[in-house]
């Protein structure tokens, strides 16, 4: 379905290239979901934006491939790329924040995508908007309202409805539950899960919240300092983590059923992009570091089938 191979992204800052993402690879199968996990600045948002080529002006994809059904999206023209956006791959941004245009009606914002890609007439569009809103549990009459008249959870639902407007195959969800209260978070996750099975969607979930990943995802990609730390299915990663960083993450997150816990309790900070360590990116914070770690950056190796780790001491 969607395969990312060796993706590297740089940001240009005052003439120097900062390596925000290096050599990231993963795969999203049809109907499955993958969680992109890591602390702020680990490159997960950059990776996500790269999938639709939505990087800010100073961002450059320097190498790699993004294959959608075998077609490399990076080779398309900007015009061709627009045809894939939303139509094939849609994004659910943090609707609770400013992802909806405050001066346009919710219904119009949903209709805009439909009319752009599906060329329905006004009546059909209105009907489709109504269906979509019902699908996410919002009364269709509220299409005439503006974002500020919606609660945070409602806005997130509206955002999801909008993302489904053109029947995409892949849904990217960027922190879909952040800034919502616990009850609403659970509702939104339920909704996503239900839609996934109902519509056979593939989901790429970008989050720093392991609880959400455990609940929703089939696979997990743990990123650290712009690189892949560990990649495997949920069971493997949660039960047999091989990378010290993943272990720390899970330790810092003792109760999977308590989604309020955060990742803040690992001592130290992620490396800044303009001052990356020469060896392993996690080395400065690692409890198992050796001289090898300081000198050489580990490659990603498949230690078991479909379980990838980038660590010199992974087997232990």
């Amino acid at each position: 379905m969607l395969e990312v191979r060796g993706l590297s992204v740089d940001y240009l800052s005052n003439g120097t290239a900062l390596h925000a993402v290096e050599n990231v690879s993963f795969k999203v199968e049809k109907g499955r979901s993958i969680g992109l996990v890591g602390e702020s600045g680990c490159g997960k948002t950059t990776t996500m934006l790269s999938l639709l080529r939505l990087l800010p002006a100073d961002g450059r994809i320097v190498s790699g491939q993004i294959l959608y059904d075998g077609m490399d999206l990076l080779q398309l023209s900007e015009h061709e790329m627009r045809g894939y956006r939303w139509n094939r791959i849609a994004i659910v941004f943090q609707g609770a924040m400013n992802a909806l245009n405050p001066v346009r009606k919710i219904g119009d914002q949903i209709a805009e995508a439909i009319q752009l890609h599906d060329r329905l007439d006004n009546r059909e569009t209105r009907q489709r908007v109504g269906e979509l809103m019902e699908m996410v549990g919002i009364a269709p009459e509220r299409a005439r309202q503006y974002p500020h008249q919606f609660s945070g959870g409602m806005r997130q639902r509206a955002m999801i409805a909008m993302s489904l407007a053109c029947n995409p195959d892949i849904l990217i969800a960027d922190e879909p539950t952040t800034a919502l209260d616990v009850m609403i978070q659970a509702q939104i996750l339920d909704l996503l899960q239900q839609l996934q099975s109902q519509l056979g969607l593939s989901i790429v979930l970008v989050t720093h919240d392991l609880g959400v990943v455990a609940e929703l995802c089939d696979d997990v990609l743990v990123m650290y300092g712009g690189k892949v730390a560990e990649y495997g299915d949920v069971d493997t990663i949660f039960n047999n983590p091989a990378h010290p960083y993943t272990r720390r993450l899970l330790e810092a997150f003792p109760d999977v059923d308590s989604p309020t816990s955060t990742l803040a309790s690992i001592p130290g900070y992620p490396p800044p992009l303009d001052n990356l360590p020469a060896g392993c990116r996690f080395e400065p914070r690692c409890y198992r570091k050796t001289d090898l770690c300081t000198a050489v950056s580990p490659d990603v190796i498949e230690i078991k089938p479909r379980h990838f780790v980038a660590c010199h001491h992974a087997e232990e």
């Binding site: 939303w86 941004f93 909806l100």
Partner: peptide, 8 residues
Amino acid sequence: LTAKAKGL
């Protein structure tokens, strides 16, 4: 960004 992601 949302608008861009929509393919506008």
